[in-house]
């Protein structure tokens, strides 16, 4: 009886501990919604033909729903703020456990970063990721020097100070996560025209690090093993600068591996991007207008060149996407109303 009591007491404490861990964790529901992106994928049907991988240049610039609307492409963006290449690799690994797309499009801007960026970005990406071997590997690859894997396992070690700042959101989303994206695309309707850009600086080195090449090789091999076509892209951002030297290295890599590479900076005019109306932060990221233009432009290439299925002809999928598009346009409409 005594041992039974002890076991019950310990179980109760473990349950309270789990509850507290969840309570103090940021919910990323209405504030810092970038933290909800990794988790949003789990609520999706896993039947995408194209997976877009990368950082904010992907989730802000490519709208899979627009691609479906125009070409019947089913795509999903697995992108996060400042997503490093090793993070993209492990996210792809995780994705392949759920589905096998025809195409993987990797945005190469993260090739510039060779070491973990900041704890905050790691948290936004990892906090709501499902536990798996990929998550553990991802954490180990991403941690900055100050971080500790224990605080990812037990978020209370990291977020306990939030106990004094809890809001209703923390209780409302205690056991559920809010989806803030549309197939991984985060709508931003603000407009901040390109005013002026910082002067280009001469860098000490333009060489991508060996580590990044290794991860690019891993992404390439993973796609090859799974009969997936890998495509490299560079989103049309004006800043941070995508130097000619960077571009040449990617072109060389793509040629060697015989994979396609699209640098959309070169075709800004063809896409029709107007940096007075199509960016929300002065040329770093496209806003909704710009993202629609890029998605139509890139969708056409994908559709014509890679023999993708037009899923608008499949009723069940069509209905599902129509429902999503309805919600998508409603949010856009609400956003316009709010802004005006």
């Amino acid at each position: 009886m005594k041992y039974l009591k002890i076991v019950i007491v310990i179980i109760i404490f473990i349950l309270i501990f789990i509850f507290l861990n969840r309570l103090v964790s940021p919910k990323y529901a209405n504030h810092l919604v970038e933290g909800s992106m990794t988790n949003a994928y789990y609520k999706e049907d896993k039947d995408h033909e194209v997976i877009f991988l990368g950082d904010c240049e992907v989730y802000a610039n490519i709208s899979p729903l627009v691609m479906f609307e125009n070409y019947g492409i089913t795509g999903y963006v697995r992108g996060n703020s400042s997503q490093d290449i090793w993070q993209s690799y492990y996210l792809l690994k995780e994705t392949l456990k759920y589905e096998k797309p025809k195409l993987v499009v990797f945005n190469v801007s993260s090739m510039k970063t060779s070491s973990p960026d900041s704890e905050a970005y790691n948290r936004l990406m990892i906090d709501n990721m499902k536990w798996s071997k990929e998550k553990i590997d991802l954490i180990n690859a991403s941690m900055t020097d100050e971080e500790n894997i224990l605080s990812y396992i037990f978020p209370i070690l990291r977020y306990h100070a939030r106990i004094s700042e809890l809001t209703m959101e923390d209780f409302k989303y205690l056991f559920k996560n809010k989806v803030n994206t549309y197939n991984g695309f985060l709508i931003n309707q603000n407009i901040k025209p390109v005013d002026s850009l910082p002067a280009k600086r001469k860098l000490a080195s333009y060489e991508f690090s060996q580590k990044n090449y290794e991860y690019l090789d891993k992404i390439y091999s993973l796609c090859k093993e799974n009969n997936i076509t890998l495509i490299l892209m560079k989103a049309p951002s004006l800043y941070p600068y995508w130097y000619q030297e960077y571009d040449e290295q990617i072109k060389k890599y793509a040629d060697e591996k015989k994979i396609d590479y699209y640098n959309f900076i070169d075709v800004i005019n063809d896409i029709g991007i107007d940096y007075n109306t199509d960016t929300y932060d002065g040329g770093l990221h496209l806003n909704l207008n710009g993202a629609v233009k890029l998605s139509i432009y890139f969708g056409k290439i994908l559709k014509e060149k890679y023999n993708l299925t037009d899923y608008r002809e499949y009723d069940i999928i069509k209905q599902k996407y129509e429902k999503k598009l309805k919600e998508y346009y409603k949010e856009i409409e609400d956003g316009y109303e709010k802004n005006n």
Partner: peptide, 24 residues
């Protein structure tokens, strides 16, 4: 243990609002 873990002041300060896009 629960009190210390929850109400203790330890670890790195983390103000999630401060960092976003600050590097750009």
């Amino acid at each position: 243990i629960l009190i210390i873990l929850t109400f203790g002041m330890y670890g790195i300060g983390f103000n999630v609002s401060d960092f976003i896009y600050s590097k750009f």
